[in-house]
Design a protein around this nucleic acid. Structure first.
Length: 499
RNA sequence: GUCCUUAUCGUCUAAUGGUUAGGACGCCACUCUCUCACAGUGGUAAUAGGGGUUCAACUCCCCUUAAGGACGCCA
């Protein structure tokens, strides 16, 4: 017991590079990370690329990039494809000890038997046809290069294991059958590779999705046959789509890289993910990675699957955007403004805060501070970073396009709008450039609006003239950012629409 | 079909034998207000069904029902 406690916790995240890193897998990675950090242990990233047909390096890259972006760090990295010698050694051992055997049944034959078993309402368990071939026959077949596979001689015993989350789980060996463990000496299959790696990498806790529960008895049997130490298992619930089936592309589930592109903050994603199937048992719901690490325990993981609720993610994202340091937020938004060709870098400045930018539409040169001001007035309205260009485009354009009727507040007619616009031009022209700031504008304009009675009569046309939108930041904010000259130009332009 | 797993508001969940069943998202209303947001206040809404055990059951046991997962020479 004391011995057990002193042992360093080692866990692993073992994705196969057959697609982009998705939400469910990422949550598994996160739980492994939180657990290992909490216990001051190690997290191993193991790329399970034994399926050479489907594995691709670009997916591996996506996985590594996404984890890095999220801040899920690991201590060691392995690729199963680079460990074939190790597996070969154990496959030979199993064969030599007669714990595994060659099977020469054709795929076709097996498929037919499987279908038959299904039709009889039975589990399609391999019938051990090749389990006792004599050595001569095996050698002959191998020499002939007859297609084959290596099967594990499944012991006839009941498998019981303790799952940290679910408690005791029992399986009947009869349902397991002599499952396949390798295509040949050099090509192990999933179950075998996992068992060998977990042993070799000194993994002592396996935290993985519930969909692996049924693999667990096979892996335990294999590990016992090889004389390895027992591992503790924690099978976490699946993340479900709105229809309650396992979350997948079918539900429009996007990869982490796509969430990133859309403008989700890593903090929001992590916080959201952690609370899908786990909670600290208190009413606090906003957690940083550090706080999660501190609080995380496997015991508080939920048993039932959790439906992915995009509303909540969006709420959290807005919350984290609002709480973000404005300089940091601006830096995060700039790439979106550049991508949508509102602005461009003027030179190759590495530091975004010192860089100069060009407004593409007007050729004006602006600095970081100008952009920062535009972001600042939208900080509390932003749900995703990718929204920033459409929200703030009027700060980076000369001519605004909108219907002149949009300038009308409630039941205003043309004459009324025109007279208000004239009035606005007069009032604003009289404000000195150095006094053209938010507080002053608000003071003066509110006072004028009060005189009219219905504030909207003055403020709505002004806001539309400045933004061209039916919803935007306040006119005081916009005017102070674009300055006196442009403010008056835009009022004149809107006035011109009525001639 | 067989095996495994699960079951509290629409959703994420709290309450591990005694609570008016709590919080958050969403939704609705109100306040604020030039719009959109933000913020604030209030409201809506749940123990799947049936049996036990117990003075007492969301909580423990059994059955039913429903849902999900696994059943590959994928991982």
């Amino acid at each position: 017991m004391t011995n057990d406690k002193s042992k360093k916790i080692r866990v692993r995240f073992a994705p196969s590079p057959t697609g982009t890193l998705h939400f469910g897998a990422t949550r598994t990675a996160l739980f492994n990370y939180l657990f290992s950090e909490n216990k001051k242990g190690d997290l191993i990233l193991r790329i399970e690329d034994t399926d050479t047909e489907r594995s691709e390096i670009k997916w591996e890259k996506d996985i590594i990039e996404s984890l890095k972006w999220l801040g899920i760090k690991y201590n060691e990295f392995y690729r199963q494809s680079e460990r074939k010698d190790i597996y070969a050694k154990y496959i030979k051992k199993l064969l030599d000890e007669d714990k595994a055997y060659y099977c020469f049944c054709s795929k076709q034959e097996l498929k037919e038997k499987q279908n038959y078993a299904f039709s009889q309402g039975k589990a399609p368990v391999y019938d051990k046809k090749c389990s006792n071939l004599d050595k001569k026959t095996i050698k002959k077949y191998l020499d002939e290069k007859k297609p084959c596979i290596i099967r594990f001689r499944c012991p006839t015993k009941k498998i019981i294991f303790q799952d940290i989350i679910r408690g005791k789980i029992e399986f009947d060996f009869n349902l397991l059958g002599d499952f396949a463990i390798a295509k040949n000496i050099n090509s192990p299959l999933y179950n075998l590779a996992v068992v060998i790696d977990d042993y070799d990498m000194k993994i002592n806790f396996v935290i993985r999705g519930e969909d692996h529960i049924s693999n667990t008895p096979r892996q335990i049997l294999l590990s016992q046959a090889l004389g390895f130490d027992a591992i503790k298992y924690a099978h976490i619930p699946l993340i479900l789509g709105p229809d309650k089936s396992k979350l997948s592309k079918r539900h429009g589930a996007e990869s982490i890289s796509e969430y990133r592109e859309k403008g989700y903050l890593r903090e929001a994603l992590i916080n959201f993910m952690a609370f899908l199937g786990w909670n600290p048992g208190t009413e606090k719901e906003i957690f940083s990675m550090e706080e999660l690490i501190k609080e995380f325990t496997l015991e508080k993981i939920q048993k039932s699957g959790a439906i992915f609720n995009i509303n909540r993610l969006n709420y959290l994202n807005g919350l984290y955007i609002r709480n973000k340091d404005i300089n940091e937020l601006t830096k995060l938004c700039i790439p979106y403004l550049i991508k949508t060709e509102l602005i461009a870098y003027l030179d190759d400045e590495e530091n975004l805060e010192n860089a100069k930018y060009k407004i593409i539409n007007t050729n004006e040169i602006i600095d970081f501070n100008y952009i920062k001001q535009t972001i600042e007035v939208y900080q509390e309205r932003l749900k995703f970073l990718s929204e920033i260009p459409e929200l703030t485009d009027f700060f980076f354009k000369d001519k605004l396009e909108y219907d002149k009727d949009l300038l009308k507040w409630k039941n205003m007619d043309n004459n009324e709008v025109v007279s208000i616009l004239d009035k606005l031009e007069n009032i604003l022209s009289e404000i000195k450039t150095e006094n053209f700031n938010r507080q002053n504008l608000e003071k003066i304009l509110i006072a004028e609006a009060e005189k009219i009675g219905d504030r909207g009569k003055l403020l709505w046309p002004l806001r539309v003239a400045l933004s061209g939108k039916k919803a935007s930041a306040s006119p005081f904010e916009i005017a102070s950012i674009i300055g006196k000259e442009k403010t008056i130009d835009r009022i004149k332009y809107s006035r011109g629409l009525f001639e």
